[in-house]
Protein backbone atom coordinates (compact mmCIF):
# COMPACT_ATOMS: atom_id res chain seq x y z
CA UNK A 1 0.00 0.00 0.00
CA UNK A 2 1.42 3.38 -0.93
CA UNK A 3 1.58 6.15 1.62
CA UNK A 4 -1.61 8.17 1.84
CA UNK A 5 -0.87 11.85 2.29
CA UNK A 6 -4.27 13.54 1.97
CA UNK A 7 -6.71 12.48 4.67
CA UNK A 8 -10.30 13.19 5.65
CA UNK A 9 -10.35 16.48 7.62
CA UNK A 10 -10.94 15.93 11.31
CA UNK A 11 -14.22 17.83 11.47
CA UNK A 12 -15.69 15.70 8.69
CA UNK A 13 -14.44 12.52 10.38
CA UNK A 14 -16.14 13.69 13.59
CA UNK A 15 -19.40 14.29 11.74
CA UNK A 16 -19.15 10.83 10.19
CA UNK A 17 -18.55 9.39 13.63
CA UNK A 18 -21.57 11.18 14.99
CA UNK A 19 -23.62 9.67 12.17
CA UNK A 20 -24.90 12.95 10.78
CA UNK A 21 -22.90 13.14 7.55
CA UNK A 22 -25.08 13.04 4.40
CA UNK A 23 -25.00 9.77 2.50
CA UNK A 24 -22.76 10.87 -0.40
CA UNK A 25 -19.98 12.08 1.91
CA UNK A 26 -20.44 9.10 4.21
CA UNK A 27 -19.58 6.75 1.35
CA UNK A 28 -16.39 8.69 0.57
CA UNK A 29 -15.35 8.64 4.22
CA UNK A 30 -16.10 4.91 4.54
CA UNK A 31 -14.14 4.23 1.34
CA UNK A 32 -11.17 6.22 2.63
CA UNK A 33 -11.32 4.39 5.98
CA UNK A 34 -11.20 1.14 4.02
CA UNK A 35 -7.87 2.23 2.55
CA UNK A 36 -6.32 4.29 5.34
CA UNK A 37 -5.09 2.69 8.55
CA UNK A 38 -4.32 6.04 10.06
CA UNK A 39 -7.85 7.46 9.90
CA UNK A 40 -9.28 4.07 10.81
CA UNK A 41 -7.13 3.93 13.93
CA UNK A 42 -8.36 7.39 14.85
CA UNK A 43 -11.95 6.19 14.50
CA UNK A 44 -11.25 3.14 16.62
CA UNK A 45 -9.60 5.28 19.29
CA UNK A 46 -12.97 6.96 19.72
CA UNK A 47 -14.51 3.56 20.39
CA UNK A 48 -11.90 2.97 23.09
CA UNK A 49 -13.25 6.02 24.92
CA UNK A 50 -16.82 4.84 24.44
CA UNK A 51 -15.82 1.37 25.61
CA UNK A 52 -14.15 2.76 28.72
CA UNK A 53 -17.29 4.73 29.54
CA UNK A 54 -19.44 1.67 28.89
CA UNK A 55 -17.31 -0.46 31.21
CA UNK A 56 -17.62 2.06 34.00
CA UNK A 57 -21.34 2.62 33.58
CA UNK A 58 -23.87 1.40 36.08
CA UNK A 59 -26.23 -1.03 34.37
CA UNK A 60 -29.99 -0.62 34.02
CA UNK A 61 -32.22 -3.55 35.01
CA UNK A 62 -33.25 -5.72 32.07
CA UNK A 63 -36.65 -7.25 31.66
CA UNK A 64 -36.82 -10.70 33.22
CA UNK A 65 -37.11 -12.50 29.88
CA UNK A 66 -34.21 -10.64 28.19
CA UNK A 67 -31.68 -13.42 28.62
CA UNK A 68 -34.03 -16.16 27.41
CA UNK A 69 -34.95 -14.03 24.44
CA UNK A 70 -31.37 -13.57 23.31
CA UNK A 71 -30.37 -17.18 23.87
CA UNK A 72 -33.35 -18.32 21.79
CA UNK A 73 -32.40 -15.89 19.01
CA UNK A 74 -28.88 -17.29 18.59
CA UNK A 75 -30.09 -20.12 16.37
CA UNK A 76 -31.72 -17.86 13.81
CA UNK A 77 -29.83 -17.76 10.51
CA UNK A 78 -27.18 -15.02 10.41
CA UNK A 79 -27.83 -11.94 8.28
CA UNK A 80 -26.33 -12.08 4.78
CA UNK A 81 -22.67 -11.02 4.76
CA UNK A 82 -22.05 -7.46 3.58
CA UNK A 83 -20.89 -6.84 0.02
CA UNK A 84 -17.11 -7.06 -0.21
CA UNK A 85 -14.68 -4.85 -2.07
CA UNK A 86 -13.62 -5.88 -5.55
CA UNK A 87 -10.72 -4.67 -7.68
CA UNK A 88 -10.06 -1.00 -7.02
CA UNK A 89 -13.48 -0.53 -5.42
CA UNK A 90 -13.60 -0.87 -1.62
CA UNK A 91 -16.67 -2.46 -0.01
CA UNK A 92 -18.69 0.73 0.54
CA UNK A 93 -18.29 1.63 -3.15
CA UNK A 94 -19.23 -1.91 -4.25
CA UNK A 95 -22.29 -1.59 -2.03
CA UNK A 96 -23.27 1.60 -3.90
CA UNK A 97 -22.71 -0.25 -7.18
CA UNK A 98 -25.04 -3.01 -6.00
CA UNK A 99 -22.16 -5.48 -6.15
CA UNK A 100 -21.73 -5.07 -9.93
CA UNK A 101 -18.97 -3.42 -11.97
CA UNK A 102 -19.62 0.21 -12.93
CA UNK A 103 -21.81 1.01 -15.92
CA UNK A 104 -20.09 4.06 -17.33
CA UNK A 105 -21.74 6.87 -19.23
CA UNK A 106 -19.54 8.66 -21.75
CA UNK A 107 -19.13 12.35 -21.07
CA UNK A 108 -16.92 13.13 -24.08
CA UNK A 109 -13.14 13.31 -24.37
CA UNK A 110 -12.83 9.75 -23.06
CA UNK A 111 -14.17 10.84 -19.68
CA UNK A 112 -16.78 8.56 -18.17
CA UNK A 113 -18.96 8.77 -15.14
CA UNK A 114 -21.54 6.87 -13.19
CA UNK A 115 -23.90 8.61 -10.81
CA UNK A 116 -24.21 6.47 -7.71
CA UNK A 117 -26.70 8.55 -5.81
CA UNK A 118 -28.22 11.99 -5.98
CA UNK A 119 -30.66 13.63 -3.64
CA UNK A 120 -31.22 16.98 -2.01
CA UNK A 121 -28.35 16.43 0.43
CA UNK A 122 -25.78 15.81 -2.27
CA UNK A 123 -24.62 13.60 -5.06
CA UNK A 124 -22.07 10.86 -5.43
CA UNK A 125 -20.45 9.64 -8.60
CA UNK A 126 -17.55 7.71 -10.00
CA UNK A 127 -15.37 9.41 -12.59
CA UNK A 128 -13.01 7.81 -15.08
CA UNK A 129 -10.43 10.13 -16.60
CA UNK A 130 -7.85 8.95 -19.18
CA UNK A 131 -4.21 9.83 -18.48
CA UNK A 132 -3.32 13.44 -19.22
CA UNK A 133 -6.96 14.48 -19.60
CA UNK A 134 -8.34 17.35 -17.60
CA UNK A 135 -11.54 16.99 -15.69
CA UNK A 136 -13.70 19.74 -17.15
CA UNK A 137 -13.28 22.90 -15.14
CA UNK A 138 -15.98 23.30 -12.58
CA UNK A 139 -16.69 25.67 -9.78
CA UNK A 140 -18.94 24.59 -6.98
CA UNK A 141 -20.82 25.81 -4.02
CA UNK A 142 -20.39 24.03 -0.75
CA UNK A 143 -18.20 21.04 -0.09
CA UNK A 144 -16.65 18.50 -2.42
CA UNK A 145 -14.72 15.37 -1.42
CA UNK A 146 -12.83 13.45 -4.09
CA UNK A 147 -11.16 10.12 -3.35
CA UNK A 148 -8.73 8.54 -5.81
CA UNK A 149 -9.32 4.81 -6.34
CA UNK A 150 -6.96 4.22 -9.24
CA UNK A 151 -4.25 6.22 -11.01
CA UNK A 152 -3.77 9.80 -9.88
CA UNK A 153 -4.65 13.40 -10.56
CA UNK A 154 -3.02 16.67 -9.71
CA UNK A 155 -4.19 20.24 -9.53
CA UNK A 156 -3.30 23.48 -7.80
CA UNK A 157 -3.67 21.70 -4.45
CA UNK A 158 -1.10 18.97 -5.15
CA UNK A 159 -0.89 15.39 -6.41
CA UNK A 160 -3.43 12.78 -5.34
CA UNK A 161 -2.92 9.02 -5.52
CA UNK A 162 -4.97 5.98 -4.53
CA UNK A 163 -6.46 6.57 -1.10
CA UNK A 164 -5.88 10.33 -1.13
CA UNK A 165 -8.84 12.64 -0.62
CA UNK A 166 -9.09 16.16 -1.92
CA UNK A 167 -11.31 18.41 0.15
CA UNK A 168 -12.56 21.48 -1.70
CA UNK A 169 -14.68 24.18 -0.17
CA UNK A 170 -16.64 27.02 -1.75
CA UNK A 171 -15.53 28.60 -4.91
CA UNK A 172 -12.18 26.97 -5.49
CA UNK A 173 -11.76 26.60 -9.22
CA UNK A 174 -9.24 23.80 -9.33
CA UNK A 175 -8.49 22.02 -12.54
CA UNK A 176 -7.52 18.43 -11.89
CA UNK A 177 -5.54 16.62 -14.60
CA UNK A 178 -5.19 12.84 -14.57
CA UNK A 179 -1.62 11.60 -14.13
CA UNK A 180 0.23 9.28 -16.51
CA UNK A 181 -0.21 5.51 -16.29
CA UNK A 182 -3.54 3.93 -15.45
CA UNK A 183 -6.69 5.97 -16.04
CA UNK A 184 -7.72 7.90 -12.96
CA UNK A 185 -10.83 6.54 -11.28
CA UNK A 186 -12.17 8.63 -8.46
CA UNK A 187 -15.19 8.86 -6.21
CA UNK A 188 -16.59 12.35 -5.84
CA UNK A 189 -19.24 13.64 -3.45
CA UNK A 190 -20.71 17.13 -3.57
CA UNK A 191 -23.47 18.82 -1.66
CA UNK A 192 -24.39 20.99 -4.63
CA UNK A 193 -24.82 20.13 -8.28
CA UNK A 194 -21.58 20.77 -10.15
CA UNK A 195 -21.48 23.64 -12.58
CA UNK A 196 -19.49 22.40 -15.49
CA UNK A 197 -18.31 25.67 -16.99
CA UNK A 198 -17.18 24.37 -20.32
CA UNK A 199 -19.18 21.32 -21.23
CA UNK A 200 -22.82 21.74 -20.58
CA UNK A 201 -24.92 24.86 -20.24
CA UNK A 202 -26.18 25.30 -16.73
CA UNK A 203 -29.80 24.75 -17.78
CA UNK A 204 -29.06 21.23 -18.88
CA UNK A 205 -27.41 20.34 -15.64
CA UNK A 206 -30.44 18.81 -13.93
CA UNK A 207 -31.04 16.61 -16.96
CA UNK A 208 -27.50 15.30 -17.11
CA UNK A 209 -27.27 15.21 -13.34
CA UNK A 210 -23.68 16.34 -13.19
Amino acid sequence: MTEISHHIPEDILDTYRAGTLPHAFGVVVAAHLSLCDECRARQEAGDMIGGALLSRAEGAALRPDARDRIMAALDAPPPPPPIRGSGVFPAPVMAELGGRPPRWRMLGGGIRQQILSADREGSLRLLYIPPGKAVPEHGHRGLELTLVLQGSFSDSEGAFHRGDVETAHDAIDHQPVAGPGAPCICLAATDAPLRFNALVPRLLQPIFRI
Binding site: E44, D47, M48, G50, G51, A52, L54, S55
Partner: peptide, 12 residues
Protein backbone atom coordinates in the same frame (compact mmCIF):
# COMPACT_ATOMS: atom_id res chain seq x y z
CA UNK B 1 -9.85 -3.32 20.28
CA UNK B 2 -10.74 -4.53 23.73
CA UNK B 3 -14.13 -6.22 24.16
CA UNK B 4 -15.86 -3.11 25.53
CA UNK B 5 -14.63 -0.86 22.69
CA UNK B 6 -15.65 -3.40 20.07
CA UNK B 7 -19.15 -3.87 21.49
CA UNK B 8 -19.51 -0.12 21.99
CA UNK B 9 -18.69 0.33 18.29
CA UNK B 10 -21.50 -2.04 17.29
CA UNK B 11 -23.94 -0.22 19.55
CA UNK B 12 -22.82 3.16 18.21
Amino acid sequence: ADAAAWIYGIAR
